[in-house]
Every structure is written in C-alpha cells, then in structure tokens.
C-alpha cells in the first residue's frame, strides 16, 4: 500500500493556513495531468472526489490502488473514504476491463422484451455473466439498470454505441464484429 500522509499540515505561526502540498503525479503519463486539472478546478475540495474518480475511470478504464491513493492525497482524504466511495457506486470498476464492453440494459421494459435472453446468449457464447470479463480480456459484460431507450427494448451498448430492438443473434454478431476489428 502506498504511503498515506496521516497528519494534516498545521497552521504556520502567523495563524495563516499553510499551502497544502499536493502529491507528485504518479508518472509522466499525461492522463494524470488531466485528472489533476479536474481536482485543481474544484480547489482540491472534498466534493471533487466523485468527479476525480470519473476522470480516472475515463482515462484509465478502471480505478487501481495507485490512482485511488493519488486522489486521496490530492484531496487530503483518507484512502478508506476514497475506497468507500469507489465501491459504493456501480459505475466504478476496480479491475481492468476487457478491450471491448457490452452493457446489456436490464431495466423493466427490456426485461419484459427479453433482456434475459441477451444475457444468456452472451453467457453461452463467451462464458461470462454481467460483471465479468473473458479470460482473454477481449470482452467485459455489464448490466445497466436502464439506459432510458425503452422504445427500442431490448437494448444494449456495445463499445459506446447504443443498439436497440435486439435479438441474441443480432447482438452476438455485433460483438463478434467489434472483437474482430
């Protein structure tokens, strides 16, 4: 576990709060700069935590310990708080994702129109359930609560593209296409 500063820097003798030192960027990877900018814009305030984690996930695809420690130090929060928030929200992933993602909508309308068959179809073909990633890291499967396109139920999002009025063969064909590319 990375070292976490436990004591907050105290006030200087004149009673003025000291400038809080911000941690070094974990590496020269430019993505850290973007994340740091997000936090700086919010004045490194505690309420920037979720936004910062969104930033990390957008940049790296998931949240690892290094990233969480960096965010924790930057915002002067205990790592436990960052971890608590990261695990509370379904959208944050703590493990690396596959090269392609398929999010099956399992909202009520999609459920009534056969979202279950889509999930089963994927499981049969790729052997993964929602929340899982194939062993070769080609595909991650997720379930969404509702993507809000009930008019096109059942729907899924494959690599960011929303697809509607799906059947298991149609969805599997699309996934195979994405993986082949």
């Amino acid at each position: 576990m990375a070292a976490i500063r436990l004591a907050r820097p105290g006030a200087n003798p004149k009673g003025l709060p000291m400038q809080r030192p911000h941690p070094e960027l974990p590496s020269s990877d430019k993505r850290w700069k973007i994340i740091n900018t997000t936090m700086r814009r919010a004045g490194y305030a505690e309420h920037a935590l979720i936004e910062a984690l969104h930033g990390v996930q957008d940049a790296f695809g998931f949240l690892d310990e290094q990233a969480m420690s960096f965010v924790a130090e930057s915002l002067d929060l205990p790592l436990s708080k960052v971890y608590g928030v990261a695990t509370f929200y379904h959208l944050f992933q703590l493990k690396p994702q596959g090269r392609h993602t398929c999010v099956v909508c399992t909202g009520t309308a999609c459920y009534i129109k056969g979202a279950g068959a889509l999930v089963e179809g994927i499981e049969e073909r790729y052997g993964v359930q929602p929340g899982g990633t194939t062993d070769d890291k080609a595909l991650s499967v997720m379930a969404a609560r509702c993507v809000g396109v009930c008019g096109l139920a059942p729907a899924a999002v494959v690599d960011g593209t929303l697809l509607g009025k799906l059947t298991p063969p149609k969805l599997l064909e699309r996934i195979a296409q994405e993986i082949a590319e």
């Binding site: 979720i50 509370f88 929200y89 379904h90 959208l91 944050f92």
Partner: peptide
C-alpha cells in the same frame, strides 16, 4: 453539473 455514478 454533478454526475451520478450508477446508484439508484
């Protein structure tokens, strides 16, 4: 704007 993160 504040973004949610998938918690009903």
């Amino acid at each position: 704007i504040r973004l949610g993160a998938g918690a009903f």
